[in-house]
Amino acid sequence: MHSFGQRANAIITFSLTIVAVICSLASFSDNFNTPSPTAEIEVSNFNWFQKQRNGNDEVSLTLNISADLQSLFTWNTKQVFVFLAAEYETPQNALNQISLWDAIIPSKEHAKFWIHTSNKYRFIDQGSNLRGKEYNLTLHWHVMPKTGKMFADKIVKTGYRLPEEYR
């Protein structure tokens, strides 16, 4: 008949297969969720704006961010990582992306928020191109699942402009 080893082998293989199938089904079920997040971003103040000793421009600003990301959450969502990036083009660089603020949203209850903050990471250019520079503020989010595939998307807000003079 069947030995102990054979039975143990069969049970372990079977249970692992079931777990793998359930995990992939859970990840697949995320595809049926069509989120409709919204965001408003306002730059309320430029705290200071100067040229560093090494020639790079640096600006400090205060932001009002309000967003509703509740629709991103499904039963397979562990957390949503959300961050706000300034994006602009300079003669030297085709794209500059600078993260200004980020947060981890652990649950759906915290996914509708309003925050008034100065930039968490330094807004430094590679060079001296920031005076009067037009830039986009983009709210990015990364959905981290309990298991399976990760999702990412963004909302782009255009038409922001930095001051013409250092202050």
Binding site: T90, N93, A94, L95, Q97, I98, D102, I104, Q126
Partner: peptide
């Protein structure tokens, strides 16, 4: 995680800064 990206206009090379959440 990547928090800053600077991509060159001519060569397409990238400068990337990372940070752990």
């Amino acid at each position: 995680r990547v928090i800053k990206v600077h991509e060159r206009q001519d060569t397409g090379e990238v400068d990337v800064l990372t940070k752990g959440d």
